[in-house]
Design a protein around this nucleic acid. Structure first.
Lengths: 348, 348
DNA sequence: GAGGTCATTGTGAGCGCTAACAATTCATGG
DNA sequence: CCATGAATTGTTAGCGCTCACAATGACCTC
């Protein structure tokens, strides 16, 4: 920088230095074709020399486009939401959009409403809501909002465009795997009642058992945390010897708690009881024993969500089906078979 | 909404409906004191009726303030960065700022530079960089940037204002705990060489041993992943019976891998070998056995970082010391003592 | 009742950019 | 050699808001 300035340089300053009009500078910056090479070079040199950066607010005002998207999420320190968030940001950036995030501790209607207001004040053109709680989605549908909203993980049957992993299928993979391994019945530790994904997993588990002609036992319920899994595991341990040989746990963290409870109760996994989780968090492979689980493709979720949102923003007809469902994948490890595959050898 | 409009309503539209000037509307929105109650009510009614929302770009252009902060981070699906990110966003929102995030897969100089450009295009007033790799911070210091930058987790001795958890102290707590428990020597599985936090933890471990008059053994090195911990654990298992009775592992995920490797080698924890981790991820309490570890207060990190950044942006003298160091806390569990505290009873 | 103060409201001028159109230059061919 | 049109550049008018200041009117003081 040649000299410090109080105000950052404007397009007009650059134009003056380059001996052109400000509009020509704008054209160079906008990659407009009709600019002579020599002129373009002169302008670029002036921009470089002054350290000029286009003022985004002025640009947004003139174009009526902020090129910013919003994301509302909760539980962002958990693997699933964090992965989704990451995938969303990456996909948005690839399209030239900036992402502003609001992370909530609890997904109440008020919090959600405040979050949307905050994002709206920030001028976002659209929002992706990672809102897996039914109440939240219903609230979302009611709220008056000046931009399109796409929901993630809300399941089907909602009035809002949404992108989902097929939880029902995931639960069928998990439950079917246990039945195929010879277990007569599969118990279930479900997630919180209000979560659509929890409900879908439970439904998939139930359907698989019923199709096999098995009466589903009463599912236990946790709150996704390892602690709630631990408590449920203590209860499950009481059923060993009375027909319990296999459990489908609605997420990996709770499965971790279940494994600990079983171990403490002297129940061996998988010899006495087989356990399947859901999510495939990075730790699962190193649990005691390594956990069979269901992997979700968050990267695809992110890409599809952003694509859908941009379609809505630009007024295009959505390119995919209105309700996107992404296939999950079963990852088999030692918690369901009496052998331990080598770490690092997990299928991708 | 009474009727759909092609263009969203402007301040002038609201003013017309309320029978005042646009400036009065602006005053109502800005909570300016000198507005008659009756007038304010009339304006608010008009705003409500038209569903008016202030245009953030125009406001930003006129005030020269976007009220947006940027965050650059990598490894955002890991517990530490995700927690920091969450804390940053929450703290910024409390101050009325929006946060735009760029999550990088790898923290190379190019990626970092692109990320800052992207945020700059988005008009951020300042950036927090979660950049724990030394090379990244050095690059950051070099880059020409039109806004202040605060680093997190870069350790001291950097030319950039930064906020850190005192890693050295954390390592001393961990190592000292093992020595106090009667272990003669403490082995160490370090994090990646380029990470300042890894280096600080190693230094703290080394210093503690040397002060106790113990020759530090050669540390092993991992990459934070459970898999690298597993491989290191296999090597460590070979030293059992040759003086190895305690290991300080630089993070919880690697500790998980170590625990599995020891278990598979028939080594009991903590009876044969005691293990301490670092981070206190939510799963640690449910490892086999529950892991003694060092907890970092990410919430404070977030608050201090935002406070520091805002000081810089507003040209204030930073209110705290220029280099903020936050105290970590030892959490003792079963992996270092032959008893298992009840889950849920962990100190906060 | 002239002059002063205060609270309240209005007016005009930008903020820095892009879009639309106008103006200029340049090459080309009849 | 000038008409014709394409390529290139400049001019003007906003985008919707806030800031500084001007104007208005109510109320007080002497």
């Amino acid at each position: 920088m040649t000299h410090a300035q109080l105000r950052p340089p404007t397009m007009a300053d650059v134009a003056r230095l380059a001996g052109v009009s400000h509009q020509t500078v704008s054209r160079v910056l906008g990659d407009h074709p009709n600019v002579r090479d020599e002129t373009r070079a002169r302008v670029l040199r002036a921009i470089e020399e002054m350290g000029y950066r286009r003022n985004s607010s002025a640009r947004a005002l003139a174009t009526r486009r902020t090129r910013t998207l919003g994301v509302v999420a909760s539980g962002t320190t958990l693997y699933g939401p964090a992965s989704t968030l990451f995938a969303l940001e990456e996909a948005a950036r690839a399209e030239g959009y900036l992402v502003s995030t609001v992370s909530l501790r609890k997904l109440t209607v008020e919090q959600l409403s405040e979050a949307l207001d905050h994002l709206s004040e920030g001028g976002v053109e659209g929002v992706v809501a990672i809102a897996p709680q039914r109440s939240a989605v219903e609230a979302l549908a009611e709220l008056r909002r000046p931009f399109p909203v796409v929901a993630v993980g809300t399941g089907s049957g909602v009035e809002i465009p949404s992108v989902n992993v097929d939880q029902h299928l995931g639960a069928r993979l998990a439950t079917g795997h246990l039945l195929a391994a010879g277990h007569r019945k599969v118990w279930h530790l479900a997630g919180p009642e209000d979560w659509q994904e929890a409900a879908d997993r439970t439904a998939g588990w139930r359907a698989t058992l019923e199709e096999a002609g098995v009466e589903p036992p009463m599912p236990l319920r946790g709150d996704w945390s390892p602690l709630s899994g631990y408590r449920a595991g203590q209860e499950l341990a009481g059923w060993v010897g009375r027909g319990l040989t296999a459990v489908f746990v609605a997420n990996d963290q709770m499965a971790l708690g279940v494994l600990r409870a079983l171990r403490e109760a002297g129940v061996r996994t998988p010899q006495d009881v087989a356990v399947v989780g859901f999510d495939d968090i990075p730790e699962s492979e190193f649990f005691a024993p390594p956990l069979t689980t269901v992997r979700q493709d968050f990267s695809t979720v992110g890409k599809r969500s952003i694509a859908l949102l941009l379609d809505l923003i630009e007024g295009r007809v959505p390119s995919g089906s209105p309700l996107v469902a992404i296939e999950p994948q079963l990852v088999v490890r030692a918690s369901t078979f009496p052998y331990a595959p080598q770490p690092g050898g997990t299928p991708d």
